[in-house]
């Protein structure tokens, strides 16, 4: 069974696993053999052009030790055999089209989504 995982929310809960929770869930499922294609859309387009880790949180004397590193997490997904794509127009609308995207990440025009949806068994919109 092949599942298209769509991530549209971004920077929403990056404190929970010091990671994006859906990227984290995708890595966990991939580790037990899940066949996945991960698509970044909406504000998650920002993930496609991330470099390094997010800024650490600091409250009073408390400071976060391991802020999320989205670039690393996406790279790990790609290296584990998950195809990772971003919707080209989501980058363009946000002025991100000229920024270098993470190595191995594909850019897909919105018009190609129907074909992508048709190519998988299930579509999980997170």
């Amino acid at each position: 069974m092949k599942v298209l995982q769509i991530v549209e929310q971004a920077f929403r809960a990056t404190g929970e696993e010091q990671d994006d929770t859906i990227l984290w869930l995708s890595r966990s499922m991939r580790a037990v053999g899940a066949e996945l294609h991960l698509l970044l859309n909406g504000n998650a387009a920002y993930y496609a052009v991330q470099q390094g880790h997010l800024p650490p949180l600091r409250f009073g004397h408390w400071q976060q030790s391991h802020p999320a590193n989205i670039e690393q997490d996406l790279q790990a997904l790609i290296d584990s055999g998950v195809t990772v794509s971003v919707v080209e127009e989501a980058l363009v609308e946000r002025g991100l089209a000229q920024k270098p995207s993470i190595k191995g990440l594909q850019r897909l025009p919105r018009k190609a989504l129907a074909s992508l949806y048709n190519s998988v068994d299930q579509v999980w919109q997170w």
Partner: peptide, 22 residues
């Protein structure tokens, strides 16, 4: 359980619906 259980559930089920949050 863990996300591995979600994959196990989904693999064994006839269909799956994910309801994401916002």
């Amino acid at each position: 359980g863990s996300p591995a259980d979600l994959w196990k559930f989904a693999s064994a089920a006839d269909n799956t619906l994910v309801i994401g949050t916002r």
